[in-house]
Design a protein around this nucleic acid. Sequence first.
RNA 1: GCCGGGGUGGCCGAGCAGCGAGGCGGCGGCCUGCAGAGCCGCUCUACAGGGGUGCAAAUCCCCUCCCCGGCUCCA
Length: 475
Amino acid sequence: MIKIYNTMTRNLEVFEPFNPGLVTIYVCGPTVYDVAHLGHARTYIAFDAIIRFLEFSGFSVKYARNVTDVGHLRETGEDRMIVGAERLRKHPMEVADKYMMEFFRDMDELGVRRPDIQPRASMHIPEIIEAVEKLVDMGYGYVLDGSVYFDVGKLPDYGKLSKIRPEQLVMHRIDPDPRKKNPADFALWKESPPNYPFSWKTPWGRGFPGWHIECSVMSMKYLGEQIDIHGGGQELIFPHHENEIAQSEALTGKKPFVKYWLHTGELTVGGKGMHKSYGNFITIREILQSYSADQVRLFILSSHYRTPIDYSEKAMEQAVENLSKLVNFAESLRHAAEEAQKQGPDDMLRTKAYQIREKFLESMSEDFNTPKALADLYEFVKTFNPVINGLSRDDAAYLHSIFKEMCNSLGLLRKTEKKPSTVDAYEYIRIILEVRRELRRRGIYDLADQLRNMLAERGIVVEDLKEGERVRIGR
RNA sequence: GCCGGGGUGGCCGAGCAGCGAGGCGGCGGCCUGCAGAGCCGCUCUACAGGGGUGCAAAUCCCCUCCCCGGCUCCA
């Protein structure tokens, strides 16, 4: 039984999807007008682990994550894509393509599994226009010049997700259009200025979609009118998700639009949200130059997805240490599974392993408590590391497989494919190791150590064990 | 101003009424030709502050302080 904290109710709820066994999940993707940063990594790694765990628990998951490439306005009223386009002196569609591809690459490198569907806002303009027309026909939308606004006053329960009442919305960074019926009314469609490179023809003039409508339209198109999970960073609760609910429930008349709302905590650097103006902006590409994908992932999963994380070098060092502990343990088990002489199963040992696995599942089932689940993983390591040399070949293989299974369910220690080049090099490494073994046998340790150091400098770590060496390539 | 989220031992970080989560770091020891990995022990009146309720509070209530976020830009 999985329990999930639902932002809508602010409570832990038993997870029961609309259709037993099948989970539909929509996560708000990036606006592709600039490179992806650590905050994106936090959110999408968290959801990656959640989705992997849902599948691990036997659910079949249909996962959509959008790409917003139009309509996301800045406070000055310009589309973010236009800003990016002016900076790069390119058409907005080129800008969208460039950053979308870079985003995909960053996610791949982080080991974030690709969603089943990655719909793009600009490819759904006809559906968006249709939805806006429908809202106008139904009386939820009204036209002001060439723009269409959603009439918040038509929905008595507007504000139910963020627990904000429209009359509380008194602070404005830009003064709202005074002709709006209610200052809280938001744009479904915006009229475009003349010569605007990113606009479409509609019954009410040329323009482009408002920010929130694309998510309503695309999630309905691909996942249905009601979905199980909708996620994103918690800064999206208001206005984005609140407005999605308003539009979607108005359009379909079906409630709830989303059964469980999940929001990830913010990632801060030096205690503050990342902003280019603060000088604490770290891109995914930058972080991957200093740390591996698993190191970043372990850092992120070391905090619960809902709590804020502060990035620091020190926290990363701790993640580095913890990851090598997991990796070393897995490697030792694999080594034992290949080299151990003893055969046959030890029931006591397997029972203990199974118990820890159960604990791990319980931890993850409590609102995806990854820090607790990691503690269970560490308990597994601590329990079996002392006996690793006396394991039978079968038990080592058994422990190895369930340990890897647990790690994989969080997206950690995924299969590391042997790169063809390293397979070739391995032949030569073996020759070196053979010579080194002879040197050690003869007591010529200075030369043996020199070989080990020289290999280490090239990223080939040789560790002497009781029986043979363990070789690790790369960091 | 309104609405959220936080403040836990040197550091990271669970717990959210009742056995001292866990990890990192540090110190000491074991193992090893050395290194690495690993093991053992120590590092334990930690819960922002002050009141209150309870047999029992980090956990519930009240007040105060600090940090962060949202309030039509954001993962």
